[in-house]
Design a protein around this nucleic acid. Sequence first.
DNA 1: ATGTTGGCTAGAAGCCGACAA
DNA 2: TTGTCGGCTTCTAGCCAACAT
Lengths: 435, 435
Amino acid sequence: MEGDKKVQNTTLWLECAGPLVTLPVVGSYVAYFPQGHSEQVAASTQKEADMQFPSYPNLPPQLICQLYNITLHADQETDEVYAQMTLQPVTGVSCQEKDQSLMSNLGIQTKEPTISFSKILTASDTSTHGGFSIPRRAADKVFPPLDYTKQPPAQEIVARDLHNNEWHFRHIFRGQPRRHLLTTGWSIFVSSKRLQAGDTVLFMRDQNGHLLLGIRCAKRQQTAIPSSLLSSDSMFIGVLAAAAHAAATNSRFTIFYNPRASPSEFVIPLVKYNKAVFHTQISVGMRFRMELETEDSSTRRYIGTITGIGDLDPIRWPNSYWRSLKVGWDESTAGQRQRRVSLWEIEPLSSPFIVCHSSSLLLRSKRPRLPQGLGQTLSSEEVLESPMKQSSLWGRGEEGTTDIQNLNLQGLGLERSMQIHQRSDLMALTLPSDY
Amino acid sequence: MEGDKKVQNTTLWLECAGPLVTLPVVGSYVAYFPQGHSEQVAASTQKEADMQFPSYPNLPPQLICQLYNITLHADQETDEVYAQMTLQPVTGVSCQEKDQSLMSNLGIQTKEPTISFSKILTASDTSTHGGFSIPRRAADKVFPPLDYTKQPPAQEIVARDLHNNEWHFRHIFRGQPRRHLLTTGWSIFVSSKRLQAGDTVLFMRDQNGHLLLGIRCAKRQQTAIPSSLLSSDSMFIGVLAAAAHAAATNSRFTIFYNPRASPSEFVIPLVKYNKAVFHTQISVGMRFRMELETEDSSTRRYIGTITGIGDLDPIRWPNSYWRSLKVGWDESTAGQRQRRVSLWEIEPLSSPFIVCHSSSLLLRSKRPRLPQGLGQTLSSEEVLESPMKQSSLWGRGEEGTTDIQNLNLQGLGLERSMQIHQRSDLMALTLPSDY
DNA sequence: ATGTTGGCTAGAAGCCGACAA
DNA sequence: TTGTCGGCTTCTAGCCAACAT
């Protein structure tokens, strides 16, 4: 119904989703991670997957799919953005297709830099007492220029939200010292969207010069969606069963990706996935860079060190690349940041003192074609560098040192079995001979 | 979190749920219908189960369970009531347990008639222009008596909602002609709960004389819950997979029952189910009575005729008792009413010209114990009375006559296979020898 | 008996520059 | 440059009885 209407403006949707969110393009190949999908459910229901799940032996940790369809949406109530993707599991990808996939970019590249600004609302912005204080630069950059000869300089602003609803504001330049303000119309917007101090508004100008606006709620909001419709257990199981069934019958399935609610993207362009998994050298002790979203909705690179490699959930998801890296962060203010990341999220820094080919196993495994099928496993080795007092190197080592020792003790990563998904020709595909 | 808090007041919850809703008691045995559960999902997501589902061969149309736990809830935002039930599938029920189950009533019998009233809000009630007009009888019945010697007679009313929040109202008796009104405090309540004309408010007095109030939103509201979290396909599959897994591993599972959203109850006390299925004579042409909720939240009995017996979904749910009866209604205003009902929802009227023992097959099936296991089937017969020009008897016969002929042609019900769930001793249990 | 409306009024919403930070 | 506040104005929320059904 109403809530089902598609969002037309992709750029605005992406702005609302946040600076780091990318979307795969229709027709391209992607890796879908049931684990990541479960994490989104967990984050939304605020429950862990604690029940004993049925095993889905045919459901690998990642499912290679072709993106059959994607539509963008926004919650009718909260304007929360989400994307509906229909995925077609693929059992074999030919070289041509693969090359196309390689050619296609890593997502919808809307890097025609958009003219936009966002602001975290202050108490004054949201109080009934007054209007909205427009940051100076923002007014100059995205709003139509004011006629400063008028007394006072003022104009009417019209902006459309994700649902294509129009919002009217009076934009005035006054006060001592002078400043830009939104007055009439602003409080209606605030109360309609139920904005509170701490939430973010976002204005942007599209190609035609039309104004668009979106909102991004502060994280806290998420709390009250205990769904009342399905138990969280059923949701977890539904995610897995749907994927397993689709994989087994080779039929399409549909998922929702909610970029603000999900801890990480769980539909990754296959090229990006392959590059990270097969063409990148990873080892414990290695330092890396990772982009993260800052408080004020821009991005920043943080530096960290890989402190361990191993399964996030050895029971349910053995041999998964999902968050297979344990990491420590250089900055002590890094309390909030993830302790586990996935290979494709990081950008390794060249570190002269560490030489390690985690992909060496792949080079060596030039054995004859494996019988085709899902979930074949190769046992293999990864070389683990002995850290040699490196603990001092990777930050505070809050638990870093221990982690590495534990890893060695437990042999995680020393002898690691690796699951080859879908078909072995994917392997060939990811292993150009010149590598 | 907040939204997870239990509702303490069962009576108020039941009032909000509606006059026909009953809840099974903890420890009692129930029949759980995945089909009915799916219908609740369908109603909530406004989508049919159109995907090709995986088959769950071990999941019968009904699952006999013991009610392990039940908690009552109300949505923090909308106050929509729902119940969380944890069900323990049972593989065998001893005679003692069965007797207890028989002894236990058909649900929480709170038939200490509650002092309450409900009113559908008018435009004036919800406008910002004024207050709430209290129906005369309601004021006398549930509100504390006014001191009419005062000029004007007025008092402060305090009532608690499902979340145990207090609401204060000024209750005054004034106007020409005199009438009871809620003024100060009313509009805050209306805007907080986002009530609109057509929604229902409900006041009641508990045993201690304290006032309680609840709300019931008009049906329309339901539209905007496209969930944005899980695709409807995943939800359907989640419902089935969770039940199938629980049945297979004999472990507990949790469901949500949403009485206002669900077309029918799908957790039925086993006694009620057994009585209807095994101890009630049913045949095509038979007339029956059924209680339904009226517009103004009371109940009314409607009369109808059984026009057919057969599977609602012969493909996915063969041999299911869920809505196995096709019915026609006497009143022509019956456009809205269900065309299919379940055995336990109706009350057969004694009709002298129809003698039919649908349970005759059971009496005859005194064969030695069947091997234990799920989903065993007995082929059996049901006697179908030839309708002999009865078509004129059962109302307008809009499609009744055709239905019956179709049924005969297709042999639905003439030779009917019947699935015995769980264990054969359940059968014995439902067949007292004196019947 | 009770839904709707016009009149009246009190208080909140909302526009303004002053004044910090 | 921009967040908050006191002062002032405007408008709506909200109380009332009249009137209608």
